[in-house]
């Protein structure tokens, strides 16, 4: 049986994430009540796991790290069809950079046990680093392919996948167990179903805190993070727009004239 672990993240809803801003006076982040949702690319990761489960004998475990409310997105993955869920949640995990996040997730994966394939979205909409997948692979000492956009050959010990590249792709051959980070082009994620939500009632989410995970406090969260945010700054722009007003006809006329005068069209 193919043992798949899908790593997912609860991120501020991208539709509302712009509400979180740096306060120009205090240089701190403004508190905004933005709901947490399943990271968009992680849906592609789930979809790959589900497609594999449809074609192979596979078991899907969902793993996330985050505040207790992130249990909702784990539940959502269970409703989509994952078999079991784990949430790593502890105050000590807070403030983690990509390195500490990858380390904590890797510890979680070690505790879950054997796996053949770890799948995650290539980046999160809030962090946008693309680091967690490959760093996790490095901690677990398994190979990784990032930005996977097509599964060419699967099922055996060696898989063939395509990964997106500037103006092209690379064809990779990879031996399981391995980590894949996936891109949006890979598939179209399915939507939640009512019976999936009902089936998820019987599926368990296991919560692990610092002690249960069995890691030292200084290796996780902010303390375990090599990088820190040293300052926040607002930006003063060098330009201020001259707003061209009038009727639509006037505005078009004026704009074209200005561009012609500047000799840029």
């Amino acid at each position: 049986m193919l043992k798949i672990i899908v790593c997912v993240k609860a991120v501020p809803d991208p539709k509302e994430a712009h509400k979180i801003k740096i306060d120009p006076a205090t240089k701190t982040l403004t508190r905004a009540d933005v709901p947490l949702v399943l990271n968009l690319l992680d849906k592609n990761a789930m979809e790959l796991a589900l497609l594999l489960k449809e074609q192979l004998d596979a078991h899907i475990t969902v793993l996330s790290m985050g505040p207790p409310v992130a249990g909702n997105i784990v539940k959502e993955c269970l409703a989509l069809g994952a078999n079991q869920g784990f949430l790593l949640s502890d105050r000590a995990f807070g403030g983690a950079d990509a390195y500490a996040t990858a380390y904590t997730l890797a510890k979680g994966i070690e505790k879950i046990g054997e796996f053949d394939l770890i799948i995650c979205g290539m980046a999160s909409s809030d962090g946008s680093t693309e680091w967690v997948g490959p760093e996790m692979a490095a901690f677990l000492k398994v190979p990784v392919v990032t930005r996977v956009n097509e599964i060419v050959e699967f099922g055996g010990e060696w898989w063939k996948v395509k990964a997106s590249l500037e103006n092209g792709y690379r064809l990779m051959q990879v031996k399981l167990p391995a980590v894949f980070t996936v891109s949006r082009e890979l598939n179209t994620p399915r939507t939640l179903s009512f019976s999936g939500i009902i089936k998820a009632r019987k599926k368990e989410i296991t919560l692990w805190d610092l002690n249960e995970l069995g890691v030292l406090e200084e290796t996780v969260g902010q303390k375990g993070s090599p990088t820190i945010v040293s300052s926040l700054a607002t930006v003063n722009s060098k330009r201020i727009a001259e707003i061209i007003s009038g009727t639509r006809e006037d505005k078009v006329e004026q704009l074209v004239q200005k561009l012609a005068d500047a000799a840029v069209i």
Partner: peptide, 18 residues
């Protein structure tokens, strides 16, 4: 309930996609 919210999400996703 959280589950009812998820049903709402499922219905919304269906409405938007289908």
């Amino acid at each position: 309930t959280e589950e009812q919210e998820m049903f709402r999400k499922a219905a919304r996703e269906f409405a938007e996609t289908m």
